[in-house]
Amino acid sequence: MDTGFDLREHGGVDVFLRDCPTRAVLDVIAGKWTMLVLVALADGRPMRFAELRRRLDGVTPKVLTQTLRALEREGLLTRTVYPTVPPRVEYRLTRLGQEAGGLVQRITDWSQANVAVMQAAREEYDGRAARQLPGAAS
């Protein structure tokens, strides 16, 4: 499949190619919980695990742990353990994480501004689809 100009010939990457390393970055960033963690931490204030869990309504501890580990692995956040009893752990975005958080915040803002329009479009589409089903009343 020809994806157009192949940037690899010039030292770059081409996200449309299956082996492009950029796809791994997109896999991490595009996750629902990843995006929400980035927005929750975007103000620069460190948060503890329980704070994040309360902020991200519906996330399970397992999924939050996996998400935080993935973000740490990719260099988007830092995990700081304080030697207290019990240990206190805080999460904070790195500079790279702040950049990604800013991008995700703009997507979040756009989503909130356009949710009513998209819900109306969904309802219209579903209504049309229901009328086109075999056996549906015309």
Score class of each variant (00 low, 15 high):
Glu9Trp: 07
Gly11Asp: 11
Val15Thr: 14
Phe16Gln: 08
Pro21Glu: 05
Thr22Pro: 00
Ala24Thr: 06
Ala24Asn: 15
Val25Cys: 00
Leu26Trp: 13
Leu26Lys: 10
Asp27Ser: 06
Ala30Gln: 07
Ala30Ile: 00
Gly31Leu: 12
Gly31Met: 14
Gly31Ser: 07
Trp33Gly: 04
Thr34Asn: 15
Val39Glu: 11
Val39Gly: 08
Asp43Glu: 10
Pro46Glu: 11
Pro46Asp: 06
Met47Glu: 13
Arg48Tyr: 02
Phe49Trp: 06
Ala50Val: 13
Glu51His: 14
Arg53Cys: 01
Arg53Phe: 04
Arg54Trp: 12
Arg55Cys: 15
Asp57Tyr: 06
Leu64Ile: 12
Thr67Ala: 14
Leu68His: 09
Arg73Met: 01
Arg73Val: 01
Glu74Trp: 10
Leu77Ile: 02
Leu77Glu: 02
Leu77Val: 03
Val81Tyr: 01
Val85Tyr: 02
Pro87Trp: 00
Arg88Ala: 12
Arg88Lys: 13
Val89Cys: 03
Arg92Glu: 13
Arg92Asn: 04
Leu93Met: 08
Thr94Phe: 15
Arg95Trp: 10
Leu96Lys: 06
Gln98Met: 05
Ala100Leu: 01
Gly101Glu: 12
Gly102Ala: 03
Leu103Ser: 00
Arg106Glu: 13
Arg106Ala: 11
Gln112Ala: 13
Ala113Thr: 13
Asn114His: 10
Val115Trp: 05
Ala116Gly: 08
Ala120Gln: 11
Glu124Val: 02
Tyr125Cys: 07
Gly127Asp: 07
Arg128Gly: 04
Gln132Gly: 04
Leu133Ser: 03
Leu133Arg: 11
Gly135Arg: 14
Ala136Phe: 07
Ala136Trp: 14
Ala137Asn: 11
Ser138Phe: 10
